[in-house]
Structures are given as structure tokens and as C-alpha cells.
Design a protein around this nucleic acid. Structure first.
Ligand SMILES: [Mn+2]
Ligand SMILES: [Mn+2]
Ligand SMILES: [Zn+2]
Ligand SMILES: [Zn+2]
Lengths: 142, 142
DNA sequence: ATCTACATTATAATAATTCTAAACTGTTGA
DNA sequence: TCAACAGTTTAGAATTATTATAATGTAGAT
């Protein structure tokens, strides 16, 4: 996604009408340095609090899924209880902080290339992703 | 878990009362060769159909979570929309068949040891797990 | 300006999961 | 042996995340 505000172009390119709700969502999601990991709830809060944009919950869901279909967002499974999304849509690895429930992207260099020795007959590999769960080091817990 | 039916002992060992519901669940979960990956729904179906045991849904949830707390089951995150559980409670890797939604355990030998080069300050690594998504090889789709 | 397909919205519906409170049962120890 | 208690089960209600519905609005083309 672009650095500044011509999300209108980008949306049109993939065949999504650049409505003001979608443009606002793009601004929240993509006007930032690093990739953004979020839940629907995070996003709704950001839209209503930071931006003063009231967008109906249904639209947020619709738009997130539209972006996902168009390759602007990727769903990440770390918690079976709610959906996390990621503005980094490539196959990549994560650290998951079990204290803060924060996801952190791994760089290429952080983890050696994974070598899969087994193959399932008649199946091709779509993705290989590593999840590294981390937690507080200090033994402050009883 | 044991091969035959002294689940009563095992349950007592971890401080769970060996009620008939729990013993039946143990039989369904652990009287099998390979590790078992399942959703709550799978389990309820197995209990009512194969075994002729009607167990309330609340009890199935309660018991699964009790087993999880006691280290008899582990929750697996592959799908943000429902919970999968695994009778293999060690940290291990999986293949996930995106056609059939089936989980398959990887053996030690299937994937080389993962080398993590990055570390998050103040955090220790709890687990490192790989998810390999696979799907049908034939290009039968449009 | 008009039209039309696509979007947005409030609201209802559904699905997974958890809570509640009453009835039940495994275990303990008199 | 058996009453008593704590832990367990249960049906059903409540909660939460998500999706569907159907009426209204709007972007983009003519
Ligand atoms: Mn989804
Ligand atoms: Mn859970
Ligand atoms: Zn990421
Ligand atoms: Zn497994």
C-alpha cells in the first residue's frame, strides 16, 4: 500500500469502489511504518477514537474481508477465539507475546529457511509458517 | 494416557474425579493408536454416535478445558473460527489439509530443528511450532 | 441529471462458547 | 455404613464474534 493518501487509486486498481469508509480504513491500516496486526475490535476502536469516523460494524467486517480477498490483508490464526489480521500479506513468521497478546513479524533473517522432509501425496505445500510463543522471563509468578 | 481402561487412576492422579462422563471421554480420546485432532463438535458426535453416551455440551466443554489445564489436551490454532484440540500435548509441528480441514502431526524427522536468531528482550521462548498448509495438487479448479 | 450496480447501515440471525443455578454424585470420615 | 460436603453435571440462558437481511445511500458511467 502507498505511503501517502492516494488509496483511491489503489482501491480502484483491484476493483473496489473508493468509498469514504474504505479510504478511512486504508488510512488507519496502511499509513504507518510497520506492519499492523489487529482484531476487528482494535480496528473499530481506532476508527471511532483516533479518526472520528463512525463506521458500522458490518461495514468493518465487509471491508476487512473485501481487503482480504483482494490481497490487502491476511488472516492470522494464533487464537481460536477471535480473528487477527495482518497488513503483511506475505507468508512470514511471527513471535506472539503471550503476556500482551501482541504479534511481531519475523524478518527473513530471524529464522533459517524451514526444510520440510515429508510430503503428503497428492498435496502441494501452500505455506510454511512458524509461530514462536514468548512470555515474560522473570519468574515473578507464584 | 494409558492403552487400556484404567483412566480412573489417571484422572485421580491429576486430581480430577473419575466420573462416568470423564471416563467415557478418555476412552474416546485416548483409546486409539495415533494422536487425535478434533473440534468440540467432532467429540460430541463421537460420544453420542459411536459410544451411546449422551453428555451435555457444557460438560464436554468443561471437561475438555479441565483436561487441557491438566495437560491431557492441547489447543491448536489453525482456524480462528473454531477451536481444535490435540491429544499430543508436546510442542510439535503440523500439516493442515486445507481441502479436508484435517490436521496431521509431523514427526521429529519431518522438519529440521528450527533456529531462531532473534530474541525479544525480557522474554523467553515457550514454544516454536510450524504449520504447513497443504492443498490438492491437481489444477481442477477454474 | 439520471441510472444502476455496488456499499453502507441498523438490525436480526446464527454459531461458538461460557455462565447460572439447581440437581446429582464421588469421596471422606464419623 | 451413610450423612455431609465439595466437586460435577445439566438444561437452559447469556454472551460474544460473526454473518445475513433488506432498506437506503452513493460512486461512476452515460
Ligand atoms: Mn475469516
Ligand atoms: Mn480455549
Ligand atoms: Zn505479520
Ligand atoms: Zn498434533
Amino acid at each position: 500500500m502507498p505511503k501517502k493518501c492516494n488509496f483511491i487509486e489503489k482501491l480502484r486498481e483491484v476493483g473496489l469502489r473508493p468509498t469514504k469508509q474504505r479510504v478511512k480504513m486504508c488510512e488507519v491500516l496502511y499509513n504507518r511504518e510497520k506492519t499492523f496486526h489487529f482484531t476487528i475490535n482494535d480496528l473499530v476502536k481506532l476508527l471511532s477514537e483516533k479518526m472520528n469516523q463512525k463506521i458500522s460494524l458490518a461495514t468493518v467486517y465487509n471491508t476487512v474481508h473485501a481487503f482480504e480477498r483482494k490481497g490487502y490483508l491476511k488472516e492470522i490464526s494464533i487464537d481460536s477465539h477471535k480473528s487477527y489480521f495482518d497488513t503483511n500479506t506475505s507468508a512470514h513468521h511471527h513471535f506472539f507475546d503471550e503476556d500482551t497478546h501482541e504479534l511481531i513479524d519475523c524478518d527473513e533473517s530471524d529464522i533459517d529457511k524451514i526444510n520440510i522432509r515429508k510430503n503428503i501425496t497428492g498435496k502441494k505445500i501452500n505455506s510454511v509458517e512458524v509461530l514462536v510463543r514468548v512470555a515474560s522471563d522473570n519468574q515473578t509468578q507464584k
